[in-house]
Amino acid sequence: MVSWVFYMNQDQFVNIAETKTNFIRKTISNGVATPSLGLNQLFKGSYLDISILIASLIAVVLYIILNKTTFGYELKACGYNRNASKYAGMNEKRNIILSMAIAGGLAACGAALWALNGSQDFKWNTYQELPSVGFNGIPAALLASNNPIGVIFSAIFLRYIDAGGSYLPGATAFNEYVSSLIIAVIIYFAGFSKFIKEFLNRKKKKEPVSPLLNGKAPVIPAQNKADGKDGATK
């Protein structure tokens, strides 16, 4: 759970950065905007700037931290089983607090990249509701199945659908909510991936077994049954 939270917010960060870079219309320009390095000339009419590079870089760094260092391993272990990691000698409380702190830092990073693009109004009007942009980070993380590298692509993918949706009412007979419907359905079915994986595995296992046995039922050695040990495991 902890590492899930960790990934999730990290995602949010990348997601927000993607959003900003491609599709938001410019509303203010102050002197502190993120440098664009000419990336907005690459895609005409967009407000792309280096935050997409920063976001991707952070995602790669986090991938390395999580998968190639002891610290990352500890974080993941605490996420899978808190008690087991405690018995293995890890400081599980420190890990949980650190993961939340990193998640908070990343979320704030995302917000900074989002707000400093120079094309985005920053308003303090959300004290009654949660801003939906932050919440959209969760599906991006889920779709990437908690892989920091995957998050880069899932965030771009989701924002692509979302941004495309805003052009729908002008160009077609559909309205803009169709795109959120599509995203929701994608996320819903992404949840079935475990079931589908199991289903496919079950099929795979059956195939190599049948030619060896010539279609007969497998013969279980008698002694396995007789030694009475299978009752003890329960």
Binding site: S180, I183, A184, V185, I187, Y188, G191
Partner: peptide
């Protein structure tokens, strides 16, 4: 039935409901 992650399913429904109703 499908033993999916309950958080994913719930989040999907959270996204689905406003989309469907607004649509």
């Amino acid at each position: 039935n499908l033993k999916a992650d309950q958080t994913i399913g719930g989040t999907a429904l959270n996204l689905l409901a406003p989309a469907v109703t607004l649509l």
